[in-house]
Nucleic acid binder design. Structure first.
Length: 402
RNA sequence: GGGCAGAUACUCAAGUGGCCAACGAGGGCAGACUGUAAAUCUGCUGGCAUCGCCUUCAGAGGUUCGAAUCCUCUUCUGCCCA
């Protein structure tokens, strides 16, 4: 096992908050002295099963803990997901059944396994202890915290001031998450910076249960490919861990230039020195912005699909977007008849949502057949031979004769 | 329990009897340009259809030649008083 000083150096890299620092040091010292790994907690929300490179920022940090010999405890929030939404952002997130949350939890863990060492990972469901609590237990738990303390949370404050509704059960989420820490005897809990409040509640609750409080560690919330909102599936600005190499590469290339340092630092598994060199190169102009972005895109693809896939994705990108050629692979459609009206074809193959949209696309000159723009709204496609239909920059369809 | 205010398209937000498929902003999509699916500029953004028609402004009724706009009830939300 590494020395405490060395461990701290690794742990601190790229983090936003690490509180309280000296408590963690003590825990590490004890861990080394007694040869006992720390229990490192991460809670997962299984209401959305797909994880993206934003989640990966925290998962990478967990992996570092594992490489230092510590134990990761993944808590699948199946109980909390059954009840509904904690953030209040989406007002009517549907409550899931226990089975759905279990299923989502499984796929989540499968994806997390791309990053974590599963031999050093415990996976638990919080329904195990939360479902077992009686109403009396819940009241006893909620007596340990005050409304004023809960209202300190940023989004509660904002909503309260803004006259937006806050349901009582939303107050219970931080408490239930805190209780998770009690249940698994957490030494340190990780999360995004948006979780800071919830993580700190965990400390208070653990203390009131007579336990040594956990330390907390937060990682930055990675912005999505739009460069503004945080990365999330529902906003459609995410790069999924299971995205194809082509999509991963293309999405990476679509980030704003200003975001490149962030992505380089948090999505590319690089050292602090590399980050510094990268930023200096950009500022000094010795690194061309486009090459910098290609570098980032390649690293991200290589991280999840391997170097070969990264090189292929780059070559494909060059061909399709720089040379305006057509991609290697695209969806195919076998024509039902020899002649099909273009508008119907677009809708039927989901290249347009409605006929009106299909007509708009044609009018705007976005539709190409074998590289030639089609502007006739009533165009009938001759499907007696193989054709390539293109809509916009991204959507392709190979049409095969009947 | 009482009083007041509000509910508009993906989001925010105008619109208070006809000129409203509904201003504007964001988002999304597309075009031009480019170093890129970046930035910038421009267009489109309910559906069907080559005039035009159909379905929308929380829900259900009603008034009217005509309503997102007026009335009644219902549902939901916020604020104040208790």
């Amino acid at each position: 096992m590494m020395s405490v000083t060395e461990q701290l150096r690794v742990i601190e890299e790229h983090v936003v908050d690490l509180l309280p620092h000296d408590e963690l040091k003590k825990k590490l010292e004890r861990s080394v002295a007694t040869n006992t790994p720390l229990r490192v907690k991460l809670g997962l929300d299984p209401s959305r099963p797909d994880i993206h490179i934003g989640h990966a920022v925290v998962l990478n940090k967990l992996r570092q803990f594992q490489d230092l010999g510590h134990t990761v405890v993944l808590i699948i929030g199946d109980f909390t997901a059954m009840i509904g939404d904690p953030t209040g952002k989406s007002k009517t997130r549907p409550a899931l059944t226990l089975e759905e949350t279990r299923e989502n939890g499984r796929t989540y863990v499968d994806q997390a396994a791309k990053i974590l060492d599963m031999t050093r990972t415990e996976v638990v469901h919080n329904s195990k202890w939360l479902d077992a609590m009686s109403f009396k237990d819940v009241i006893a738990l909620s007596a340990k915290y005050t409304v004023a303390q809960l209202l300190e949370r940023d989004d509660f404050t904002k909503r309260y001031r803004g006259g937006e509704p806050i349901s009582v059960h939303e107050f219970l989420y931080p408490l239930s998450q805190a209780y998770d820490s009690v249940a698994i005897r957490s030494d340190i809990e990780l999360g995004g910076t948006d979780q800071k409040f919830n993580l700190l509640v965990g400390r208070e609750i653990m203390r009131s249960f007579g336990m040594e409080p956990q330390c907390i560690l937060t990682m930055p919330i990675l912005e999505g490919t739009d460069g503004v909102e945080k990365m999330s599936k529902s906003l459609g600005n995410y790069i999924g861990l299971t995205d194809s190499p082509r999509d991963m590469f293309g999405k990476s290339m679509s980030i704003p230039d200003t975001l490149m340092p962030r992505y380089f630092q948090y999505a590319c598994s690089v050292s602090a020195e590399e980050v510094r060199a990268f930023q200096e190169g950009l500022v000094a102009g010795t690194i061309h912005p486009r090459n910098a972005k290609v570098d980032i895109a390649k690293r991200i693809v290589a991280r999840y699909h391997g170097q070969q896939a990264a090189d292929d994705a780059f070559a494909e990108f060059e061909r399709v977007f720089v040379k305006k050629d057509i991609p290697d692979e695209m969806p195919t459609y076998t024509a039902a008849t020899a002649h099909e009206p273009l508008v119907d074809l677009l809708v039927q193959q989901q290249l347009a949502k409605s006929k009106t949209e299909a007509r708009t696309l044609i009018k705007q000159g976005s539709v190409q057949l074998d590289g030639t723009k089609v502007v006739d709204l009533d165009h009938v496609v001759d499907c007696s031979q193989e054709r390539v239909l293109r809509v916009g920059k991204l959507r392709f369809l190979r049409i095969l004769p009947a």
